[in-house]
Design a protein around this nucleic acid. Structure first.
Lengths: 182, 182, 182, 182
DNA sequence: CATGAATGAGCTTTCATTCAT
DNA sequence: GATGAATGAAAGCTCATTCAT
């Protein structure tokens, strides 16, 4: 059992649930049944622990997008992307919670500034490469809107509306993007 | 010069810029050139100050939506709503920053839970009442998507992409909603 | 309605119930429905308010002991004193609570030092004058023990034993002192 | 040098001398030459530190009473008890001061409520078991009076009369209880 | 007399971080 | 690798007191 890995996992979970600033390292240690000293032994500081977590999730995102989809049509790729977004959103709320938290909160945004830029460029590029193939016109704008729409759905689903009708919205969105890419 | 009002204003600004938890009351006091004691004299606690601020912004939102638009067609209302959203978003970033912050962060969400529910119900209702008149079919889903889209745009504009092409996106969105209400 | 008098009354009650240090002046003001400024207008400080209260209760004690008992035998006086002690103890717990509090707590003892000395000398004298008449031998010692016994009973009754058998103890004590003054 | 133990010792001393509420933890730390953080490291809160101290003194009291006195007559036990009370009272004023303080002050009584009940039941039982053997009649009442008398003596000696004639009172009390158990 | 805004000192508690073992 | 004692800064909050009105 790699304690370092366990610390990262637990910290991710707690940061997601309670927020970064509202999660003392002591809480991470207690949950992990590990001494306070150990966390400092493994991570230079709380901030650097956060950065490591964020980089790990970025890697995940990159990998999902890199899997060979050479043979797919852009329509298929869009379809798959939406499918995976909606199923992930339901299955792993904490993952989205965490990323929203980190992007929005000024403190964490400062700590993660470069990493956020890096990740969001990647996502924009990946999305744009799809829309480019669909219809090069306005592909940047369409990509931005596409991303914003999904982010907004995640935000409203996770943080605002208890009775957010995710399934119906998924259908609606899928229909919209599958037929005309708009 | 009403110091209470000034404290609210300054706190709003600082909470928006730095986040709630990352803004000590001492920072508010220093900025307001006021003793630490005074803030406790006027507000029972930091949380209650936050609640007061949030309620104030809710009132603003409600009022904007209440202004007599009896004679407007739903199309006109939608147009106006989008116009005001995009111009506000540019003019008063802090206002959106604040609201995003408070919705996303677990700690503030806990403190504001009831107020958030209340406000978001109102916004959903107000939006739905427009879509109802446009085309009753799926009006709830469309409202949710509409709100999510705008939230997502705010989120990406304010927090993620430095070079977010707001103007073009505005045009795109306006076109989309004005022509077919989709 | 003399507000000054009401403030004293309410302060006495609250100081008795919660203790001096644990009772903010703001609590006194709220209970009295009076502004914070007023209490400072009437009393130089919290300490001086305390001193005034203590002096008032001393006056009461002195008066009770001064009422003409010229014609009474020492036995009758002792009887009456015990009777009044036990009935008071039951009827006005707060009065005893207050006095115990003030005597025991280091902070209040410091503030009231001179007044405590004054009052306790008086009580000792008054008691000794009775025992002197009963049997001059060891009257000082007997007085001290008598006072200590009553104080101890108050302490145990009010502060320690929920089921303190006050009535039976009263009988026991009365019998002891009435028959032989021991 | 166990700092935790030292903190308890010093806190006991200061709480006794100045009272619980009148002793900031900072005073304990300064006296112990220790940082403010350390006290929180060892004790969950100021209240829990107080509880720990109180429990420790209860243990002491229990142990004193538990030492094998199987062979003693009740008269001998009473004698010993009084001897130890009076010598302790002179030797360790702070110990009594502390206990009186904690029993009388409303705030500390609230914090220690259960522990006070527990301890005072024990003391009553221990005392009653002696009086039972002396003369079962009225043993409960006699025990209560016995305890009250000693408490009252401590109270008057420590807190009220500077010139309390402890030695003579001791003699008087000893004579009273040794001859007839009254 | 009466109010309540305003001050400032001081309190308990939290917490990231350091360091000897 | 691992522990936990120890530090010190900073936070929110309480409260007696002052003062202009």
């Amino acid at each position: 059992m790699d304690k370092r890995e366990r610390l990262i996992e637990i910290a991710t979970k707690l940061f997601s649930e309670r927020g970064f600033e509202n999660t003392p390292l002591s809480a991470v240690c207690e949950t992990a049944n590990v001494s306070k000293g150990l966390i400092s032994h493994h991570f230079k500081s709380k901030n650097s622990l956060l950065r490591e977590i964020f980089m790990k999730t970025t890697k995940l995102i990159v990998e999902i997008n890199k899997t060979d989809k050479v043979n797919q049509t852009p329509q298929e790729r869009l379809l798959e992307l939406l499918e995976s977004f909606f199923s992930q959103l339901e299955a792993d709320k904490l993952f989205f919670q965490f990323n929203l938290n980190m992007m929005v909160h000024p403190k964490t945004r400062e700590v993660l500034n470069d990493l956020i830029k890096e990740r969001s460029s990647f996502i924009l590029e990946a999305t744009k490469s799809i829309f480019d193939k669909l219809d090069a016109k306005n592909s940047l704008i369409k990509s931005h809107i596409f991303i914003a729409e999904l982010d907004g759905i995640a935000l409203n689903y996770l943080g605002i509306y208890d009775d957010f009708p995710l399934k119906q919205i998924k259908e609606h969105i899928m229909k919209k993007y599958i037929n005309n890419g708009n």
